[in-house]
Amino acid sequence: TWLTCEETEDRAGEEGMTKDHGYVFEVDPEDRRANREPKPVKALGRYAHEAVVIDPKRGHAYLTEDASGPNGLLYRWTPPEHFRHGRGRLRALADDAGVLQAFKCFDSGGKFVDDLSRATKTGTVYGVDWVDVPDRDARTTSVRKQFAAGEVTRARKLEGMWWADGGAYIVSSYARDESPGRPHDGQVWFYDPKRRTLTLKVLLGVNADPSADGAFDGPDNITVSPYGGLVIAEDGDGVQHLFGATDSGRTYPIARNELNLGTEDDPEYSEFTGVTFSPDGRTLYANIQTPGIMLAITGPWKRQKRR
């Protein structure tokens, strides 16, 4: 099965909605009957979900929230005792199964970090604690608004995630005036559950001219390359790319979307999405969101040298 996320928290009666939204759903690609009446996995919380990954060793689910006013959170769901992931098992859970928590970061001196935009250089390492969510179904108050200042760490536009190397790679798309730290046009973090640390792997400075080729902004979907480093889908301003990042955080272009949906004088390019490699590592798949094109990129690929 796969998990799909609702990137909204609209309630029934709002915007024409007939049901509450903001949930994760388990989809069975082989059994249509299981999908005819979708059942939300309420145990994972109701908020503006972006992505979810599963720790195959410990069973935790990690979830990003793409929200502002205030900025969103990174969540961890701990399954109930003796739970094992498998086909249809999340869908069968009770609404209050397991424990949903939000992250809280500390710097090397033990000082609380209120927002990930505080990090100004790659290699920054934060310690991580987890704080229980009071009301995961957000019956009266959005989950991210249930915490007072100093209780949790926030980030603007927490986006794609990918599980590899024993942990979760996590994207924060950008930071501007709504974030208390330094503005940036993208971060990629790595959470190590064994050490309970969060390390900044990639940092994109503010892109002064998004219409020019060669600079990147607004990372979104992400995958880990079998040849080393990361492949990232851009959802920024101006020109849109697939780009790579080495283990040292250096970025480089892979592909550019040249399908202009606007005009010659006012060009518009849709974002790349859904980047992932085939199981044999030979083909990189990616989508262009509008008008809806799937691409298969066969390389040639070369293993990166570690620097």
Results as ranks from 00 to 15, higher is better:
Thr1Gln: 01
Leu3Ile: 14
Cys5Val: 12
Cys5Lys: 02
Arg11Ser: 12
Gly13Pro: 13
Glu14Pro: 07
Glu14Ser: 09
Glu15Tyr: 05
Gly16Trp: 11
Met17Ala: 11
Asp20His: 15
His21Cys: 10
His21Ile: 08
Gly22Val: 03
Gly22His: 00
Val24Tyr: 01
Phe25Lys: 04
Glu26Asp: 05
Val27Asn: 00
Val27Met: 00
Val27Phe: 00
Pro29Lys: 00
Glu30Asn: 02
Arg32Asn: 05
Arg36Asn: 00
Lys42His: 07
Lys42Trp: 00
Leu44Trp: 10
Gly45His: 08
His49Lys: 02
Glu50Pro: 13
Glu50Ile: 03
Glu50His: 02
Val52Trp: 00
Ile54Glu: 09
Asp55Asn: 00
His60Ala: 03
Ala67Gln: 10
Ser68Pro: 01
Pro70Arg: 08
Asn71Gln: 13
Tyr75Asn: 08
Arg76Glu: 15
Trp77Asn: 09
Trp77Ile: 07
Thr78Ile: 11
Arg84Glu: 14
Arg89Gly: 04
Arg91Asp: 15
Ala94Met: 03
Asp95Ser: 14
Asp96Leu: 03
Ala97His: 09
Leu100Cys: 13
Gln101Ile: 02
Asp107Trp: 02
Ser108Cys: 03
Gly110Met: 08
Asp114Leu: 12
Asp115Pro: 08
Leu116Glu: 10
Leu116Arg: 04
Leu116Tyr: 09
Trp130Gly: 10
Val131Asn: 11
Arg139Glu: 15
Thr140Arg: 13
Thr141Ala: 02
Thr141Phe: 01
Ala148Gly: 15
Gly150Thr: 14
Gly150Cys: 13
Gly150Arg: 14
Gly160Lys: 10
Trp162Met: 01
Trp162Lys: 02
Gly166Asn: 07
Gly166Leu: 03
Ile170Asn: 06
Tyr174Ala: 09
Asp177Met: 02
Gly181Lys: 06
His184Trp: 09
His184Phe: 09
Gln187Arg: 14
Gln187Ile: 07
Asp192Ser: 01
Lys194Pro: 02
Thr197Ser: 11
Thr197Gln: 09
Leu198Met: 08
Leu198Arg: 02
Leu198Cys: 07
Leu200Gly: 09
Val202Pro: 12
Val202Tyr: 04
Leu204Gly: 12
Leu204Cys: 10
Leu204Ile: 12
Gly205Arg: 11
Val206Glu: 07
Asp209Gln: 04
Pro210Lys: 00
Pro210Tyr: 01
Ala212Gly: 06
Ala212Met: 07
Gly214Thr: 10
Asp217Leu: 06
Pro219Leu: 07
Pro219Ala: 07
Asn221Asp: 14
Asn221Leu: 05
Thr223Asn: 06
Ser225Gln: 07
Tyr227Glu: 10
Tyr227Val: 09
Gly229Val: 10
Val239Leu: 04
Gly244Asp: 13
Asp247Ile: 02
Tyr252Lys: 10
Pro253Leu: 11
Ala255Tyr: 06
Ala255Gly: 10
Arg256Asp: 06
Asn257Phe: 11
Glu258Val: 14
Leu259Ser: 11
Asn260Asp: 12
Gly262Ile: 04
Thr263Cys: 00
Glu264Pro: 00
Glu264Gly: 04
Asp266Gly: 00
Tyr269Phe: 15
Phe272Val: 09
Thr273Met: 01
Phe277Lys: 12
Phe277Ser: 13
Ser278Trp: 12
Pro279Ser: 14
Arg282Gln: 15
Arg282Ser: 15
Arg282Val: 12
Tyr285Val: 10
Tyr285Thr: 04
Asn287Tyr: 01
Ile288Leu: 14
Ile288Val: 15
Gln289Lys: 13
Gln289His: 10
Pro291Val: 01
Gly292Met: 01
Met294Thr: 15
Thr298Glu: 15
Lys305Asn: 10
Arg306Trp: 02
